[in-house]
Design a binder for these strands. Structure first.
Length: 291
DNA sequence: CTTACACCCTGCTCGC
DNA sequence: TGCGAGCAGGGTGTAA
């Protein structure tokens, strides 16, 4: 799925298009995505005005005039397309258009200014939910989320606390949304490489006093790679052409992700990027400079 | 409690 | 050219 930088890019692009608009029509082309839509989903959205467009981890949160919050998760291939009088825009597109076909347009929302918001998702790993007024924290998807990596409470000390005593590989622990919420496979690989840390070492090892420096470095690199990616509009895979602002460009700055066999770019390293599988997912790393 | 793994779904790419 | 295997940025349920 789009990770934190891609979701944040979608949020920023969506905000000016939907803020203050009323939902005047909504069509569900099927009864479920990853999960079934909540009870009376369309009816509850109809007539409401969108008041804020926020983000928590990889979730988009649209607060509505009635007090409810629309929760949208894009899964692996979910995309939000804005069609208005100026044309079609897709902020934060993370795949090129080869995977976008109308057959996978699952939700159509018409706004009071005539704009249409289309939710398209080939694999349907994405989902939507509605949290009642004042009940967002209790929502099952929100309740177990860990710290926001760009927030004030994420730092080296927080890393030490959450990883102390953990035997799981550092890579797996960083991907666990209950600890840090918003990182995904790409940015974990990139942050570990920048920090010079092996994805295979135990998460707990990072909590040792002796590694305070490395821990500090990791916290800083996680923050840095996410901020750089947001500035680049996220990453758009399989698309190295478009430059119209709707496509991210951070994929051009990947140092390890999807670069198996390429030379390591770290200064004077001379290593080669390898691919291994951890918890069923690809890890790209340099065994020479990541320890 | 933790960790590991299968699974959900569709489509593209690669090797034979 | 056709076909099957393997792969894809995620989250959840289950088992050990």
């Amino acid at each position: 799925m789009p990770e934190l930088p891609e979701v944040e890019t979608v949020r920023r692009g969506l905000e000016p298009a939907v803020l203050g608009r009323q939902i005047v029509d909504i069509t569900l082309k099927r009864k479920d995505l990853r999960f079934a839509f909540p009870q009376r989903f369309a009816a509850r959205l109809l007539g409401q005005t969108i008041e804020t467009v926020g983000r928590r981890a990889k979730y988009l949160l649209l607060t509505l005039s009635g007090g409810e919050t629309l929760i949208v998760h894009l899964g692996m291939t979910g995309r939000l397309i804005v069609e208005d009088s100026r044309g079609t825009l897709e902020p934060g597109a993370f795949y090129d258009d080869s995977l976008r076909h109308a057959a996978h347009d699952h939700v159509l929302i018409t706004l009071s200014d005539g704009a249409r918001i289309i939710y398209n998702d080939v694999r349907r790993f994405g989902f939507m939910d509605l949290a009642g007024a004042g009940a967002l924290e209790q929502n099952a998807h929100m309740a177990s989320l860990g710290v926001e990596p760009l927030g004030n409470s994420f730092n080296a000390d927080a890393l030490a606390k959450m990883f102390e005593g953990r035997i799981a590989p550092l890579k797996a622990a960083l991907l666990d949304q209950r600890h840090i919420a918003g990182l995904g496979n790409i940015y974990v690989c990139e942050a570990l490489h920048r920090a010079g840390l092996s994805p295979k070492r135990s998460a707990g090892s990072i909590a040792m006093p002796r590694l305070a420096g490395k821990r500090e470095r990791l916290a800083g690199e996680i923050r840095a790679v996410l901020e750089e990616a947001i500035l680049a509009g996220g990453s758009t895979l399989r698309d190295y052409v478009q430059a119209d602002g709707t496509r991210g460009s951070f994929q051009q700055r990947f140092r390890v992700y999807d670069r198996e066999g390429a030379p390591c770019q770290s200064d004077a390293c001379g290593g080669t990027i390898k691919r291994i599988v951890q918890s069923g997912r690809s890890t790209f790393w340099c065994s020479r400079c990541q320890r």
